[in-house]
Design a protein around this nucleic acid. Structure first.
Lengths: 138, 138
DNA sequence: TATACTGTATATATCTTTATACACAGTATA
DNA sequence: TATACTGTGTATAAAGATATATACAGTATA
């Protein structure tokens, strides 16, 4: 009934958005199994020290994306999504971000090779940071 | 005295932001030479059918980034920036976007290889689109 | 110095985003 | 059926983003 979500008060990202991003990732990566019962909106609101309405919004947004299923009086569950569909969801956030990066690259006349090199660079830096313990996936 | 900037009215991106992104790219990619005199804020405002204050904001933001130099009564010029510094500027927008993509990927447990493949995919699709004439860099 | 161009500062209108309280409604069960 | 949980709908507060008009100030030059 507990789920690993961490809010960063410093970040400019709004609360509801931080929660959505993290919860969505937990679902589409399979870390939250289909059919799992999520914490009630009141419980999660208390845990994250925000209002019930904020959590409500998150659950509703993700339900509109087809990732959650909600029943008044009972609770909110991880929806059953086909493997194929889940992989689409899983990749789409990454793809969109990559498309934005490619757009930026094209505007400043980056070659494909240059962009690949930059991605390798970013990946390398991230892995160094993670392995040195500054940050961890879970 | 004319610069190639195109506003997309449909886009959710605010005008000032669209202008900034395009003008910044023109500068850091060297398409606008150091020392070039830009159109006056009134002239560009008229061309783009927006208010003088909007252009003023763009010029001021880019001046704060060190890309423009402005003198009241005279006009606004492309600043002289060292080659090294210009390349930092040129790459930074791309790098930041790539970092966001990598963050998204890590959250959904993408392997490095998977991310590289996705980037290659996006690049391939973009190049197909461009070569078929749907869109052009300049 | 008059004038016609530059950028600048102040004040403000409008809209959107973010977050909230509180009263309402469905469900399970002791 | 009483009660103690679930989610829902309405109305609104507060802050921030976006874009603007208008009056002001510096600069060049006929």
């Amino acid at each position: 009934m507990w789920i690993p979500i961490q809010l960063n008060e410093q970040s400019a990202e709004p609360m509801y958005y931080q929660i959505e991003v993290q919860l969505r990732a937990l679902i589409v990566s399979g870390q939250l199994a289909e059919g799992s019962l999520l914490p009630s909106i009141r419980e999660l609101a208390q845990t994250l020290k925000c209002s019930v309405i904020t959590i409500r919004r998150v659950y509703q947004d993700l339900e509109n994306e087809g990732l959650l299923r909600t029943r008044q009086g009972t609770g909110t569950y991880v929806a059953k999504v086909g493997d194929e569909m889940r992989d689409v969801h899983r990749r789409s956030a990454v793809i969109e971000a990559l498309e934005a990066a490619v757009d930026a690259g094209i505007r400043v006349k980056c070659s494909d090779q240059e962009m690949l090199d930059m991605l390798l660079d970013v990946l390398k830096r991230r892995r160094e940071r993670v392995s040195s313990g500054a940050e961890g996936g879970e």
